[in-house]
């Protein structure tokens, strides 16, 4: 019991710290791409900036506007934040290093990802204000549309490994090969859908700063805002972690099987973290490169291209798996 508690607290702290430093990393990378320095003033290389931001946010007054529906308004950030954190419990970070191993962990991650949408709907509706309203409508349509190709892209993996457990999927990849090679189409579909699912540029219509003043969290002050922010980055981390676990071999990597015991755990964790940060860099890189899509382009892209491709990928995988 005590051990589980320690595991949970460690994991939450790790995720929150990773998220805090992700904001730093994002500002640095986007700065570099735009030939600027990014954060620089607070501490060496601006490394203390995340703490300054958090301090500023938690010392602000937790104000709620008059027109809002108070209970929903207060609970919405939690509904977004908790599932995003909860999904990390089933990710196998390294060989034998996870909080819980349930047999349907892949399904669990996807289910938690869908729950986050409700938080956004609640936030937009309960704010009772036009920008959050438009934003939450957009976000709902977008997330529902992109969940379909996201799920479809993973079915090929399930066909090949015959398992819904992330741990077993990684072990399969450690024995055979990384699933990105037989499932390259699935991986690309997953990547595109994951960017849309996490509301990141170029699919960030839900929180388009230039049009919707921040979208569904326009009305949120202090910690409410911070929780949405944390949830967005946590879900980026989650999508990267799932992509790494499912397609890029998780903790497996070159020479990993030559090690035993704790060395294997440490090296596996190292591989995992490196892969996750490469994907996080790509997230930021995409944001710095592409302009935002128009709303109808976004929807037609999902329904006309991604979903047929996803179905094609399933059929192809199934046929090939049957033949070989």
């Amino acid at each position: 019991m005590f051990l589980v508690l320690v595991q949970i607290i460690t994991m939450i702290l790790t995720v929150v710290m990773a998220v805090a430093y992700m904001t730093w990393m994002e500002r640095k990378i986007i700065g570099a791409i735009q030939n600027r320095y990014g954060v620089k003033h607070t501490g060496p290389f601006g490394l203390l900036q995340p703490f300054a931001d958090v301090l500023k946010l938690i010392t602000k007054e937790s104000f709620s506007p008059d027109q809002v529906n108070k209970p929903l308004f207060k609970v919405a950030p939690l509904i977004v934040f908790v599932p995003a954190i909860l999904s990390f419990s089933v990710i196998p970070f390294s060989y034998g290093l996870w909080v819980s191993d349930i047999s349907v962990s892949l399904l669990f991650v996807l289910a938690m990802g869908s729950l986050g949408t409700y938080g956004i709907v609640f936030a937009g509706w309960s704010s009772n204000s036009k920008y959050p309203m438009i934003s939450s409508l957009r976000s709902t349509a977008q997330m529902i549309s992109y969940e379909v190709p996201l799920f479809l892209s993973l079915i090929g993996v399930i066909i090949l490994t015959g398992s819904l457990s992330l741990k077993e999927i990684v072990e399969y990849q450690n024995e055979h090969m990384w699933l990105v090679f037989p499932q390259i189409l699935g991986f690309l579909l997953f990547a595109v859908s994951a960017v849309a699912e996490t509301n990141r540029a170029p699919f960030d219509l839900a929180e388009a700063e230039t049009e919707l003043v921040g979208g569904f969290f326009t009305e949120y002050p202090s910690m409410g805002f911070a929780l949405f922010f944390l949830a967005e980055y946590a879900s980026m981390f989650l999508m990267s972690a799932v992509a790494v676990t499912v397609f890029l071999g998780g903790w497996s990597g070159p020479f990993i099987n030559h090690f035993d015991g704790s060395a294997k755990v440490v090296i596996g964790l190292m591989y995992f973290v490196i892969k996750v940060y490469v994907l996080m860099f790509i997230f930021v890189w995409l944001r710095a490169t592409f302009p935002r899509l128009r709303y109808d382009q976004l929807m037609s892209f999902a329904w006309l291209y991604l979903i047929p491709l996803g179905l094609f990928n399933i059929i192809l995988t199934a046929v090939l798996a049957y033949i070989f």
Binding site: I29, A32, I33, Q34, N35, R36
Partner: peptide, 13 residues
């Protein structure tokens, strides 16, 4: 955009 990471910064501190 990736190439631009290695371009010298234009900001004056």
């Amino acid at each position: 955009t990736f190439k631009n990471i290695f371009v010298p910064k234009v900001t004056t501190l």
